[in-house]
Design a protein around this nucleic acid. Structure first.
Lengths: 212, 212, 212, 212
DNA sequence: AATGAATGAGAATTCATTCAT
DNA sequence: GATGAATGAATTCTCATTCAT
């Protein structure tokens, strides 16, 4: 209560052992139901049911329904950025890095189809809301890609006549658009793998320096 | 509800001339307010106000709120596809056609920022709803792009090792992603024009046949 | 929408004839149910039922449940003050005026027992809320009484050693307390009439100037 | 609920000494928060916080939230009645007794402003609830006052033409109304003291027998 | 055709109370 | 006895849709 007027999410974090996973269970449940029905069509009681908790428990861990969606982005995008950075660091060439970015992301989401749908579809659900919350996190994500392209330009592997952030947006857009049509369609993993190879190849050649 | 499979819009506007513009006014108003607040946050009364008609009048021209959104896609995507096809037909080479697709779309939406936001943001608002209604129309749109790529492959200008529809999705994704970040950001026309040139250049080179 | 950000109550005030009494019907229904169950124990749906309108209709005429209570005070106290002033003006002596105040108020409320209970009991229900809204109106009411006492002091009929507003408060308190115990008890009109005579007599003699 | 007519409070506090002050701490905390926000706007968790105990602990000492309010009346009114009776007994004349009643009560509440607000404001919060529980205790309190008046009538000091209980109600009402306006206003002790003198003087003269 | 007051189903959120620790 | 996380019933308010005018 000494911090009573804070704005973010509460956090019971109980006795000490065990049930600290309740927040995580709610996030997982929410991802599942948001993916199926979209943010607005999902009732809080459905999130609760999917998480196996009571309706009121949601409000012990999140300020409101919006906060649940925001928290998904914050948690999951953070994790994605972390993995991305770690894996990129292992690559030798920038080409490999670009390929890694593409494969990693499509692969990751292939294994977490619900999260894919939530991030691609729901990211745009509450414009005003997420413009404020998700935008910064999203910017950080784009920076990781832009940085790789910029690196390639410096080392002479990539052409200098494209704006790194612009290219990053285009690349992200390709991945996102592909994911969306894949996730909304009937989503065969093989399709995604082929798409991923195609995108890598188009972008790598499209970005290559003249003499490359 | 008892007659579920009705034609979507009642469509008064008898003879052909005259008050038929009320439907159009409603669509325009809806585009404006959907762009500002998103589909779910927009109240039917707000659409009515933006269109300068009474709440009840909406239901004379549209089955319900969903139908207004669906109609925007149907009308506007149709128009976009028509323009796209007509302009493409005027181009000599496939490269020109690809460039035309890109510039046309970004230019068009630059002049109709609201429609851009509705199409990129709201397309994803009601998964289930639009999956059924917008998907087919959207597929037709992708086919136009895929057809140009396919044409380039046949004539030996584009590489054969990419799937035309996959490439079309990637290209659409690039445009859409660029538009979204542009529309949600502070949206300077010049940015969009530069982005458009970059995307064209990346894709054209990325799609070019070896010896091209 | 040009006046969109106003703070008070909306006001449909329909076509022109007739149903303008809906607001009044809601107020009357609310008085009835607030009297029976108190403000907090009364559900909005009960107000609606008592008024014979749909739940949502309440919100066409009032901002929220609080606003209904506030409006009762504003409307009814205003009416009471108006009657009070008019009747007082008809009296010859200040003694008559004081008697009029007492009888008028107890009589009035005798015929509107529900209103009596709402004003005496519910006035104090939402401290903070009514402190802001009802207090000013209430002050105006006390002023009417204080003014009569002050008048009596000037003309030498009443003693000068009491503060007019303080005496007004005491007189109001007597009436209010009597009303409360009467309204909460089994409320026989005769009891109230006797009480009213007693109070008048105590206060008149209590306020009289020495030589009176 | 199945055992409706239970004794009100569970009352742990075994032997007699020791932790029995927890009940008192809760009552004190409740008086504080009820005074600030009213009964209905006060959450049980706020009472707990004000008392420095856990939410659940409240239920070890009180059956429920209602019971806390009821207990405040029972405890505090009892104490007030005891003090009243004791002090009255010390007075020589009935006039002194009436003055004692007035000063005692206003003085007492001046030093316990929160309790004043709880008793005057909250007494009326839950009609049905308190009608049953507080009414009898309140009746006992009125009887003390009525008895003094009755005594004065018998001894010829007070006029016989007023009903003792009616006069007691009027006197109580004056005190209560004065307290309310004082407690809800900016509550300067001096105001209250002056008011108290005024009330005493009005009532004593108002109740005096003709030849007094 | 057009209107907009009225409707009432639906959903988010709160909070008194319980009970495992 | 004490705790406070969890519960879920209860309630306000919103807003798509209808329909009398």
């Amino acid at each position: 209560m000494s911090e009573g007027k804070e704005e973010s999410a509460p956090a019971p974090s109980p006795g000490g052992r065990g049930s600290g996973d309740k927040r995580e269970r709610i996030l997982r449940g929410a991802i599942r139901v948001f993916a199926r029905n979209g943010f607005y069509k999902t009732r809080v009681s459905e999130i609760a049911e999917a998480a196996g908790v009571a309706d009121g428990t949601i409000y012990l861990y999140f300020k409101n329904k919006d906060d649940v969606l925001i928290s998904i982005f914050e948690d999951r995008l953070d994790a994605l950025i972390r993995v991305l950075k770690r894996e990129i660091a292992k690559c030798q060439t920038v080409e490999e890095k670009v390929e890694k970015i593409i494969h990693l992301q499509l692969d990751l989401l292939e294994t977490e189809r619900d999260l894919a749908e939530v991030i691609t579809v729901n990211l745009r659900q509450s414009s005003r809301l997420l413009k404020e919350y998700a935008a910064p996190k999203f910017e950080a994500y784009l920076q990781v890609i832009a940085h790789v392209i910029s690196e390639g330009q410096t080392s002479g592997v990539f052409r200098n006549d494209v704006h790194p952030v612009g290219a990053a947006r285009a690349l992200w857009g390709s991945l996102d658009g592909t994911l969306m049509t894949w996730a909304l369609g009937d989503a065969k993993p093989s399709t995604l793998r082929k798409a991923s190879t195609n995108i890598a190849s188009i972008f790598l050649r499209g970005l290559a320096a003249e003499g490359g």
